[in-house]
Design a protein around this nucleic acid. Structure first.
Lengths: 196, 196
DNA sequence: CCACTTACATACGTGGCGTATGTCTATGAG
DNA sequence: CTCATAGACATACGCCACGTATGTAAGTGG
């Protein structure tokens, strides 16, 4: 064992992030007791304060991890589409669908912004917005999308998506609501498409 | 004095709502100490628990009050416009601008959803969504707006607006960002407008 | 006029957070 | 090889806030 030290540390951090992610994603940030979930990881609050400073620090780390995962998924989806426009639409729809997952919903769209302020503002932390922006930029270059401020479009679409997901998630009939939301969303996007 | 009793009660409730609104709107829900802000209203937590059940109950009451005010403002704005379409756009832009006010931002778009879940889901509590829906319904009837699910459209637009406001509020140059956001937003809405 | 309810205040227990402090293990210099 | 130091983590403590249980005074209905 050459460097068991750093490995142990990384492992500890990973365990804390995993434990926090689990707790935040289920009972929510406010009701997640640091004593409880650190104990679940075989540690104590001491480790958490040492590595992340405070409870918010751990939340940041959790969010960074989830954001990276989401970004990777979105990039993959848009890359697999037959053309840019369809890739873009697929990406947006996927974003709605990801926001349906309880963990993402709770951590990224509810507790995250509430506790840390707008998460998408941390420097360029939000990979998702960046991914959307890249797609929009390309579509404009291709002449497929109407002339619109790139970042503004990305954020508006992002906002519409996350709210749609909230609506669906809280709905009595999520299946039905999901269809309505996605259909409406496609209509909205098509309004941005240059017509022939 | 015929009925000083009910008046006193209403007054007490109003004082608590006002105090809570002030505290929630400035330091935020989590950091607002019930002991502190009830004392500021010349009362104690006892009164709060009696009338509102718990801290969340007071937040609900505060939100209901703010929502009613916002709805009234939106209705007024759309009524004053020269035609339905312009009224609708004005309403949406006004929504963004309202979301810029720190109190509304904090209570309606951050703490509210985080603490209570999606506020717009409480039965038909959200007057704002209802107002938007009515406008959209009329525009569709007039043949001015594309065929789109009314509620879906209302919620997508609502989401886009509130995120845009967040973006603006947290921006380094709010003026500039506001212009970009509103311009992009108009473009988005025009995509829903039936072209001649 | 009296029993009862209602509107609040006071008192108390619990639990969570943050910090200060302790301990043990790994590393690096001599 | 060993000893001093730093870093990783645990333990211990105090504070504050919430919720509840209980008390009290004032109003109301019979």
């Amino acid at each position: 064992m050459r460097k068991p030290r750093e490995e142990m540390i990384a492992e500890t951090k990973a365990k804390l992030i995993a434990a926090g992610r689990q707790a935040f994603g289920t009972v929510g940030y406010a009701d997640a007791s640091m004593d409880d979930f650190t104990a679940g990881a075989g540690l104590t609050r001491g480790a958490l304060y040492h590595h992340f400073g405070d409870k918010k620090g751990l939340l940041q780390a959790v969010i960074r991890e989830i954001d990276a995962e989401m970004t990777a998924r979105l990039n993959r989806i848009s890359a697999e589409a037959p053309n840019r426009w369809q890739g873009f639409v697929a990406e947006c729809v996927a974003y709605i669908e990801m926001a349906l997952e309880p963990e993402i919903q709770r951590i990224m769209f509810r507790d995250g912004p509430a506790v840390l302020g707008d998460v998408s503002q941390w420097q360029t932390t939000s990979g998702c917005i960046a991914a959307l922006s890249r797609s929009i930029e390309q579509l404009k270059a291709d002449g497929v999308m109407a002339d619109i401020d790139t970042e503004a479009a990305a954020r508006l679409i992002n906002g519409a998506s996350s709210h749609a997901a909230l609506w669906i998630a809280k709905s009595d009939a999520p299946e039905e609501t999901s269809r309505r939301a996605v259909k409406g969303f496609r209509t909205l996007l098509e309004g941005l498409c240059v017509r022939g």
